[in-house]
Design a protein around this nucleic acid. Structure first.
Lengths: 108, 108
DNA sequence: CTTAATAAGTAGATTCGCTACATGTTGCCG
DNA sequence: CGGCAACATGTAGCGAATCTACTTATTAAG
């Protein structure tokens, strides 16, 4: 999967994996990998800046903790983040319709 | 629809509209607008550079003509472009699966 | 003792869609 | 006739986000 394809779609995906329960960065990476069937293996240079960006934007809130001698920064969805996620899902559906209307995939 | 969302998905969409018959730039814009149900209204500063990029990459070939006093540059798919389009469609399907696996849209 | 896994981060490059601008034609409306 | 919408193509430069490559540190397994 090309890198650019992800552009603009990563944010809602990150928000989605912390929807049910708060997770720290590394766990978010693993969750994305698992939910995508192994396709979405983000480099740390992508994920961590994205998390800080989402926090700065007010969609995530973070908290430090130490588990087994390792420092973790755990992120949870804010209420603004919830709204953002909801509208992100909606936008995805529109986007999908647009692309498929133009691409007509399925036929060779 | 956010601008970034398009990244990496525009190329196959452009190739798709010239799949059936060659079109000139302006007509490609209209075709995209129509097939997307009015959602995909590309600025010329996006489309024309994209077309030149796709031609430089060997996926499109162009030819000038004059119709009704207006100059047109008509683009058609090359065989490399056909292959690119086919793989683009395939990649779209993968991408869709990935996003929906992570996002789980549909549920609030 | 060394490597893999866990955990978090930064710096800098690249890419591409965008805004804004530039140019010129045809045809319609008043 | 004058002006504007539609037709038609293009460039320059900006900005944002993902990437590569690197850094630091701990724990557990071999």
């Amino acid at each position: 999967m090309k890198a650019d394809a992800l552009r603009g779609h990563l944010d809602p995906m990150i928000l989605a994996v912390v929807e049910d329960q708060p997770l720290h960065g590394y766990a978010i990476m693993e969750a994305l990998l698992e939910r995508s069937g192994g396709e979405l293996d983000l480099p740390t240079g992508t994920l961590y800046p994205a998390l800080r960006r989402l926090e700065r934007a007010g969609y995530l809130a973070s908290e430090w903790s130490t588990v087994g001698g390792r420092k973790r920064r755990t992120y949870q969805l804010t209420s603004a983040g919830q709204k953002m996620l909801a509208s992100g899902k909606q936008e995805w559906l529109t986007f999908r319709t647009v692309v498929e209307g133009v691409l007509r995939p399925g036929q060779a």
